[in-house]
Design a protein around this nucleic acid. Structure first.
Lengths: 227, 227
DNA sequence: AAGAGTTTGTGAATGGGAGAACAAATCACC
DNA sequence: GGTGATTTGTTCTCCCATTCACAAACTCTT
């Protein structure tokens, strides 16, 4: 059983290994890979140790071999059919995102409730009515669905997805959705990320103000001491 | 000092409170709010306790009052100028995302290195040359930058942002970027989220296979026992 | 072949967050 | 004014994740 925190980092390692392989590097140390992935080398080694013992002491890791092992563990060696619901600005961007196809994710359908969009072809895939979800999902054995609709529709879309046999949902809508046990949901929320940054930014500003005030206080105190 | 995990949830509470307020609800219990935010009520109460004591025992929380307190703590009561670099599909989607403006984030500039795009106006904001970054950032006192470029340009963009005085970066490019101390980076990676789902999906499939095998084994054993 | 130098894999210690459970505080009703 | 019901704020315990530190294992040189 691999810890959740480790699972979340494995794709990062995979990407770093691909970059190293593209650069013609065939072997790397945990230190090299950790730097490329932006983590601590001890954490990297511990993470990899959950998968097995794929390195060689005194040498390091074979880039291609480790890459294959991680890809197999994550499951990106297989083909994952995906449906995207909600073809607005974000849906367009997702449909055109090349990072999906290159990692084994195949967009089998784009769905939208708005009939105006049913003429469109995005990234080579025609936009179809939302009502076709179940038929398409069953036909292609789709396990993963992406929600890129407005918040108001998200729960309804999620319900339909679950009814269509989808068991993993990536939710871009700014809404909390509830699903039955056994269905995984991951949430990506653009404005929440910005708000987290704003909090830290504000704290930096306060910190500066406080330090400045302390400096002034110290200066005044020093003057007082002198007088 | 508010724990990082709590900071990450405050925007969720804020959104839930706004939804409650829009529904005309003026008071709510921790249980109500926790349900709306999709968390445990004990966790919610503990999170809120870091901000202060804004509830009333036996009653609950005043929706508007709590909303203001959280907004103030996060910093979304003020105006945050933001620049977006990289106006491809994703950049377009981000520029048009209404969730930014409604939370105090104001897109003051869209930048792209490609001269072909410099004619465009997206969401009412003209696309300008990437070289103008520093001038624009200084002029508007921009603290937050968004990177929506391909992976190859991300580090260069980040370096230029830091040079322009930006101290918080939201990175959508599938690349690890390194920045000096004092600069915050948050990363949103679409394909990593899908890969995490794929891992769990694969594990579900294996689990089913194993359970099925066990069932067959148990059935065979039962038959054997009967015989 | 033996020793010096690397680098992995892992046990142990530390830190932080999640959840249960309860005391303190408030309200409603009598 | 007092009693019971309700809900918050907080303490305590447990669990997960991170980091340190080192023994085991390998290569290279002499």
């Amino acid at each position: 059983m691999i810890p959740e925190a480790t699972v979340a980092r494995l794709p990062v390692y995979l990407r770093a290994l691909t970059a190293l392989a593209d650069a013609g590097i065939r072997t790397c140390s945990s230190e090299d890979l950790a730097t490329a992935a932006g983590v601590n080398s001890a954490k990297l080694r511990k993470d990899l140790s959950y998968l097995g013992s794929y390195g060689t002491r005194g040498v390091g890791y074979d880039v291609d071999y480790l890459r294959y092992q991680i890809a197999r563990e994550i499951g990106v060696t297989q083909d994952w059919p995906v449906v995207i619901v909600g073809i607005g600005n974000l849906g367009h961007a997702l449909a055109n995102y090349s990072g999906f196809r290159s990692r084994g994710f195949r967009v089998v359908a784009l769905l939208d409730a708005d009939p105006e969009r049913h003429e469109e072809i995005v990234a080579g895939v025609p936009v179809r009515p939302f009502a076709d979800l179940e038929a398409i999902a069953r036909e292609h054995a789709v396990a993963i669905g992406v929600i890129a609709t407005p918040a108001g529709s998200a729960q309804d879309v999620a319900d339909q997805m679950v009814a269509a046999g989808i068991t993993s949902i990536l939710n871009f809508a700014p809404a909390v959705i509830s699903v039955p046990d056994g269905v995984d949901v991951r949430k990506v929320d653009l404005s929440i990320e910005l708000q987290i940054l704003a909090y830290h930014e504000q704290r930096k500003a306060h910190e500066h103000a406080r330090v400045d005030a302390d400096d002034h206080g110290a200066a005044a105190l020093a003057v007082g001491g002198d007088a």
